Simulated scan of single mutants.
Amino acid sequence: MDLELRHLRTICLLADTGSVTKAAAALSTSQPALTTQLQRIEREVGGPLFHRGRSGVRPTELGEFVLVRARGVLLSMDDLLNDITARGASPSTLRVGGVGPLTVELSARLPEIFPNVPVHVRTEYSPKLVTDLVRAGRLDLGTTMDYVDRDLPSDGPLAWAMLAVDPLHVALWEEHPMAEKPFIQLEDLAESPWALTPPDGTGWPECFYLACQRAGFSPQVPYRLYERSEIRDLIADRRAIAPCQADFDAGKGVVVRQLDGAPIQLRHLLVWRRDSTVHQASARIARLARELLNRGELKEAPTPTE
């Protein structure tokens, strides 16, 4: 079997979702069929590309090697196709993608800036995937996230606007010893088990481990889950606590508290290509996005840290 572009897209999708089940659903195929295809790809490259476990899949050392090169090949091909499509043609649609509820809310307001231009919207789990899609010209505008400790690239085709910075909170069960405090020191949670979401490609969960290291402990992380509802159930059952955003569902049995000193800060970003149709209007778009975030009326939706 020769490797094809569709095989490279498959392994990238597996890495981005961290789940055979979710990747199979995205590809409109069955889990057994995707597993069989992955096994054929692994035979072709000469070794396993992913570690399999109850919490999902994560790249092996060989997998990381292949993924870096696969993404490069796919981005080059996307650039080629985008350049071919763009020759002599004016864009007839505005393609917007991102993570979290801001993506949908912002897309509904973009006709104020681009009247009579249809807006196509897609949401993703991985902020890195959103950035890659913008870089490849498959999205005109992206709403994404990263963490304050990371530097934004200042060269290359991408331009950025910082929209807001939010401190991460922690979700605990109601009877947790720290639950009565409005602000919690991260080091006071050193003995608690944690539930974390999979890597998002932009510094999560590395920034969490770094914050714990600065607080003087190594966290116990027996759970790695994607679904917000599953994490909430674990917390309510007193089996784990979890880092989260302030709007995490603090229903029956669960409370949300702010971490004292904001040891982990989430940064909301807008990203676009400097040569795209949105570049000239980027300042207006950024002001509109900040207005939506500051208003605090965005509909609840899963994000990489929840």
Rank of each mutant, 00 (worst) to 15 (best):
L5K: 05
H7L: 01
T10R: 07
T10L: 15
L13T: 06
G18M: 00
V20L: 11
K22W: 03
A24V: 04
A25V: 08
P32C: 02
L34T: 06
Q39M: 06
E42S: 10
E42C: 08
G46V: 03
G47A: 07
P48N: 01
S55T: 14
P59L: 02
L62R: 14
L67M: 08
V73D: 07
L74V: 12
S76W: 07
D79G: 13
A86R: 15
G88F: 10
S90H: 14
T93F: 09
R95C: 03
R95A: 10
V96R: 09
G98N: 05
L102M: 09
L102F: 08
S107F: 03
I113Q: 09
P115K: 08
N116K: 11
N116A: 15
V117E: 06
P118C: 07
V130A: 04
T131P: 00
T131I: 15
L133V: 04
D140E: 06
R150F: 09
D155A: 15
M162G: 07
D166G: 04
L168W: 03
H169M: 10
W173I: 03
E174W: 11
E180V: 10
P182E: 10
D188E: 09
W194K: 06
L210E: 05
F217I: 06
P222H: 15
S229A: 10
E230I: 12
I231W: 13
R232L: 15
R238K: 15
I241M: 13
Q245K: 09
Q245P: 01
D247Q: 14
A250M: 13
A250P: 11
V254T: 10
V254M: 11
Q258C: 02
A262T: 00
A262I: 00
P263C: 01
R274H: 14
S276H: 13
T277F: 12
Q280L: 09
A283F: 03
A283W: 02
A286S: 12
N294T: 13
R295F: 03
R295I: 01
G296L: 13
L298A: 12
T303Q: 11
P304I: 07
T305P: 00
